[in-house]
Design a protein around this nucleic acid. Structure first.
Length: 405
DNA sequence: AATCCGGGGCT
DNA sequence: AGCCCAGGATT
């Protein structure tokens, strides 16, 4: 239903047209994921990724990994304890940094019992310089937990492993798949990069929804045979080929399938929320002059600029004189013809960017003015003010005052 | 959902 | 020199 492209059955030797079809399959996944909101994929539905595309990924990735994988000390062991140690050390830490620490740690604590019996002080000494020292404390606690609860035998299922301190979804998946051949996925920064490029996933990877989608896709790709090799291959590809900057597409086993590459957009992925993309909010400030000065309102306690006086302002999608006038009337009961001031003013807060548009008007008499309690507003008082220096106000209000004259 | 942890890589 | 990165825990 989702896939526009008809996929031919897999044939060992790919003809050019098949490659085109597979790439188009990746592309149609991309198109589907890109359109509108993030789909709620059913993890039970393996058809989410066309099986021909899945097969092709496995067929290309496995031999590449066997040929190109970097030798690492923890790749020569089947000891779950050693694999666990390596995965915890590899959290947020690069392979080259981890290697010497890993060797040294294993020499001091060759098994769970020796680690569980050691004083925390000794463990931390061996961790010194690696960073994230909570990992060492969690590792130590987990060793004691395994010693007491599992008779020093490392738990062998994803769910049990996930319960250990210092182990989250990534680490549990890595240990379960590598040490126990359980077909569970991993999702780290490398895998996110590979998947978002391969399938041209344009959603912000910082969003929890996007993470969920990526976990599901990773889960639907993990093979039952050698899931650990597949997971390691994806991470290795991200670390050595599908790199954040200048990806080496010419050496990538998945290049012909890659939807981002097909669009020449691989360097733009993954998409993440940039700091400059903080939401922009349009605010209309209203400056009314009367014989008794200008109308100002006091901000309620508990919010932004609490207790400070400012010109009444409204958050609006589109600040038009008519719309602002309506809001202003609802809040204050004053019906005044507003004129848009030519100047606009930007104000950057940590969490949002506010664009101020100024509206000016005149009231011939200093009408009695009260806030309508039924109208939600950030203000708790309003009054005509002749001497601006007599009330506390923010720099922004002073800027507005200077601009509007 | 937001913040912290801490080192290394990149600009 | 300063910004960015991203697994897990905590609040």
């Amino acid at each position: 239903m989702l896939w526009c492209t008809k996929i031919r059955p897999w044939i060992t030797q790919n003809s050019p047209s098949e490659i085109t079809n597979l790439s188009a399959a990746a592309h149609s996944v991309a198109h589907y994921i890109r359109a509108g909101t993030i789909p709620q994929m059913k993890s039970s539905d393996p058809a989410d990724i066309p099986s021909a595309l899945k097969n092709s990924i496995h067929k290309r990735l496995a031999p590449w990994f066997q040929r190109c994988k970097r030798p690492m000390p923890w790749r020569n062991t089947s000891d779950p304890y050693a694999i666990w140690l390596s995965e915890v050390m590899l959290q947020q830490t690069q392979v080259a940094t981890v290697e010497p620490y890993y060797q040294r740690f294993l020499q001091h604590f060759p098994d769970i019992d020796s680690l569980a019996a050691a004083p925390l002080e000794e463990v931390l000494k061996l961790w010194a310089g690696l960073g994230y020292y909570r990992r060492a404390r969690s590792l130590h606690r987990a060793a004691q937990f395994i010693a007491s609860t599992y008779h020093s035998v490392f738990p062998c299922t994803y769910d049990q492993i996930l319960q250990l301190p210092g182990i989250g979804p990534y680490t549990a998946g890595a240990i379960a798949s590598i040490a126990f051949r359980e077909a569970v996925p991993v999702l780290d920064g490398n895998v996110m990069r590979v998947l978002t490029r391969l399938l041209l996933i344009q959603h912000d990877i910082a969003r929890p929804q996007t993470r969920k989608l990526l976990w599901k896709i990773a889960g639907s790709l993990v093979p039952n045979k050698n899931p650990g090799d597949f997971n390691q291959a994806m991470m290795e590809l991200g670390a050595t080929v599908c790199t954040p900057t200048r990806p080496r597409c010419e050496s990538c086993p998945l290049a012909t399938l890659c939807a981002a590459r097909r669009e020449h957009l691989q360097h733009r992925f993954p998409v993440r929320q940039s700091k400059s993309a903080t939401p922009r909010i349009s605010v209309a400030a209203v400056i009314i002059r009367s014989p008794q000065g200008r109308l100002m309102a006091r901000r309620k306690p508990g919010g932004l600029w609490e207790h400070l006086w400012e010109f009444p302002a409204f958050e609006l999608v589109r600040p038009t004189a008519a719309g602002v006038s309506k809001h202003f009337f609802a809040l204050t009961g004053l019906r005044i013809k507003l004129k848009r001031h030519p100047a606009t003013l930007a104000h950057q807060l940590t969490h949002r960017r506010m664009e101020y548009t100024l509206f000016t008007g005149r009231s011939l008499s200093a009408a009695k003015v009260e806030l309508d309690a039924k109208i939600a507003s950030p203000y708790d008082a309003v009054r005509w003010i002749t001497d601006m220096t007599s009330v506390p106000k923010s720099r922004l209000t002073e800027k507005i005052s200077a601009l509007a004259g």
